[in-house]
């Protein structure tokens, strides 16, 4: 991460990690989560669910920072994020 000024508490900061859960059968393939994920974690997959939509898949799951935007934007309650304690990264300049 690039800072214009190094934060004074940089040694205490941790980048949160999230664990994505995609409920594929509920998805209607609108693509809101794919479009608005700030980290570009998601992508529409090639597989079909039983309704014939392409649910998203996590292509870079380790990049997820648990911002919950996908969960808030999903109109079908088909994706959510939980905080993963393991694998939190230290912030480095």
């Amino acid at each position: 991460m690039k800072f214009w000024r190094t934060p004074l508490d940089i040694d205490k900061l941790q980048i949160p990690r999230g664990e994505l859960h995609i409920l594929k059968e509920r998805c209607k393939g609108c693509g809101f989560c794919v479009e608005y994920c700030p980290k570009g974690v998601l992508e529409l997959s090639d597989e079909f669910n039983s309704k014939g939509y392409h649910p998203p898949k996590a292509v870079k799951p380790e990049e997820c920072v648990n911002c919950d935007l996908c969960e808030l934007l999903c109109p079908d309650f088909a994706i959510y994020c939980v905080r993963a304690e393991a694998g939190e990264k230290e912030v480095s300049n």
């Binding site: 859960h21 509920r26 809101f32 969960e71 999903c74 109109p75 309650f77 088909a78």
Partner: peptide, 27 residues
């Protein structure tokens, strides 16, 4: 899903079209 306690899950999936904004507003 974390919202399942506030939604009537027996009626979900809802009838709204794909890319409708209503589900987001309910969230």
């Amino acid at each position: 899903h974390p919202l399942e306690k506030i939604l009537r899950m027996d009626r979900i999936p809802h009838i709204w079209c794909p890319t409708c904004g209503l589900g987001t507003t309910v969230t």
